[in-house]
């Protein structure tokens, strides 16, 4: 897989009260953002768990991000702060095993920030393109290459 043709798979865990609505708004505004992003709606980013983030990578995601409300604006008061800490923990864990914590990120935005949603999606796709496919995929490709 050459870097040119690599289209990363990205999973975005989005809060129903902000980022998910912002995605909707981006759509209504006819804003272009990369189709690489698969959205999973959460009632709040406070629902996100370290296990969900790791499982996304296990299931083939090249990048994962969590998008919650602006700090201080969580519908459930502090769900987004909890998510931030869990993302931080998972990033550290990914660094520890050499997978790379920078494949995971936390963003904050409001429901009115449709353009910001599109921008974050582009930013993340660019970042993951630079990093290349997930190390799991790289290893599999390598193996396939060796065998052929």
């Amino acid at each position: 897989m050459s870097e040119e043709s690599f289209e990363p798979k990205i999973v975005a865990f989005c809060c129903h009260y902000c980022a998910y609505t912002a995605a909707d708004l981006a759509g209504s505004m006819r804003l272009q953002y990369p189709p690489n992003v698969r959205i999973i709606r959460l009632p709040c980013t406070g629902k996100v768990d370290v296990l969900h983030l790791l499982r996304a990578f296990e299931d083939g995601a090249d990048g994962v991000y969590v998008a919650g409300c602006m700090e201080g604006d969580c519908h459930f008061i502090n769900g987004n702060f909890r998510a931030k800490k869990r993302v931080h923990y998972a990033k550290k864990l990914l660094d520890e095993i050499g997978f790379g914590g920078d494949r995971l990120e936390m963003f904050n935005m409001s429901a009115a920030m449709g353009p910001r949603f599109a921008e974050v999606a582009k930013e993340m796709v660019e970042r993951i393109k630079k990093l290349g496919p997930s190390p799991i995929k790289k290893a599999k490709a390598q193996k396939g290459g060796d065998e052929s």
């Binding site: 768990d49 370290v50 296990l51 790791l54 499982r55 990578f57 296990e58 864990l93 990914l94 520890e96 095993i97 050499g98 997978f99 997930s134 190390p135 799991i136 790289k138 290893a139 599999k140 390598q142 193996k143």
Partner: peptide
Amino acid sequence: KEVGILSAALRLSREQKG
């Protein structure tokens, strides 16, 4: 829960090494 997290991390770590 920690069993799930550790197992996921170990699988990721292993698989990236092929």
